[in-house]
């Protein structure tokens, strides 16, 4: 075997070294940049066609809509990076919006932070139900949350029984929160930002966050590495549920009118926002920043098409095309990265 060591060292050592930065991080940054560029182009084009698009009212509308969607998308991202999915968020939003709306209706003096916390608590319990079914039922999250999607919605219909809560039944202080601002920024936007930043830091800089990525990247290895898979799963679904609950309260505040159908179909828009934002549906990669930007992009598209007076049909088609485009870009980049990484491997030979 001593012959092995006499190989010329030159052929063995390619200059891989520390020359390259993490290409994956570069890709993700490129993805977020791409969304920002797409946003800028879209806003510029729409504004030229119809300057009213950048009016205060229109901007506020977009931002409030995007805030609610972003809160949902952040929660969804936390679940998706673990290679799971939470399809029940639209129903959780509807359930909490109606529940909190009813409570506020009956207790007009209830402080707003308490209403927000109540919504998160209800949503959190829904999330825990999902987590327990996924973990102990050994059923894929797709199936479990599809089931709870109908279940939570059913509970809401049963409770509401066709009645709806209208804006004049809700206390003024509750509804006016939608218009209140801090330094000119609506509170709803600040809440969405706070949620995104907190989740982003947690996922990037804390052990539990990295463990969530690890679980999605290689579930078996995560188990063997001694990661508390069950506890983390419970946490992820609970957070996703709690954020859906928060979004439900924000929904009630923004629209004032709540019926049992609130948030129907939102789950798909949320998943679309995450995917467009670069969150891989097979887990292990993607950021909440991307997901939040994806939410903003989808909201802007919806609003700009309305402003441009384009048929609703086109909005759906464009969102669909965008998702396919995003996935296509991901595949392309993944293939390129894989090839680049293989080349950098060559120092073994």
């Amino acid at each position: 075997m001593s012959t092995v060591r006499t190989r010329p060292a030159g052929s063995a050592a390619s200059s891989s070294g520390s020359s390259g930065r993490n290409p994956l991080a570069a890709v993700l940054r490129a993805r977020e940049l791409g969304i920002v560029v797409a946003l800028a182009i879209l806003v510029a084009y729409t504004t030229i066609a119809n300057p009213r698009f950048l009016s205060a009212q229109s901007v506020r509308d977009i931002l409030l809509g995007a805030s609610i969607l972003a809160v949902l998308a952040v929660g969804q991202t936390i679940v998706i990076v673990t290679r799971n999915i939470d399809l029940s968020v639209g129903s959780v939003l509807g359930l909490t919006a109606f529940a909190v709306g009813t409570v506020v209706q009956d207790n007009p003096g209830l402080p707003l932070p308490f209403a927000l916390l109540l919504g998160m608590a209800i949503g959190g319990v829904c999330g825990m139900v999902n987590a327990v079914l996924v973990r102990y039922g050994q059923v894929p999250a797709l199936v479990v949350t599809l089931g709870t999607l109908y279940m939570f919605r059913g509970v809401t219909y049963l409770w509401a029984g066709g009645q709806q809560i209208t804006a004049d039944e809700l206390p003024r202080s509750f509804l006016s929160f939608a218009n209140e601002t801090l330094l000119g920024v609506p509170w709803l936007v600040l809440i969405a930002l706070l949620v995104t930043v907190a989740a982003g830091v947690l996922l990037r800089n804390y052990r539990v966050g990295r463990e969530l990525y690890a679980m999605g990247s290689n579930p078996e290895a995560a188990m063997l590495a001694g990661i508390s898979v069950g506890r983390n799963l419970l946490g992820a679904f609970t957070v996703s549920g709690a954020l859906a609950g928060l979004a439900g309260v924000l929904f009630a505040i923004r629209f004032g009118t709540i019926d049992a159908a609130a948030g129907t179909g939102d789950e798909l828009e949320v998943v679309a926002a995450a995917v467009v934002g670069g969150v891989a549906v097979f887990g292990g990669s993607g950021t909440v920043w991307g997901a939040a930007l994806g939410a903003l992009l989808l909201t802007v598209i919806g609003n700009s098409l309305a402003v441009l007076d384009i048929n609703q049909f086109w909005q759906n088609a464009i969102v669909g095309a965008l998702i396919l485009f995003a996935i296509g870009v991901d595949r392309l980049v993944a293939a390129r990265t894989a090839r680049a990484l293989k080349k950098r491997n060559s120092h073994v030979r």
Partner: peptide, 18 residues
């Protein structure tokens, strides 16, 4: 192998005891 393909090599090494 039981590595996490999406995470950096350094993170793989430190996982669980960062």
């Amino acid at each position: 192998p039981t590595l996490f393909p999406d995470l950096s090599v350094a993170e793989n090494i430190a996982m669980g005891r960062q």
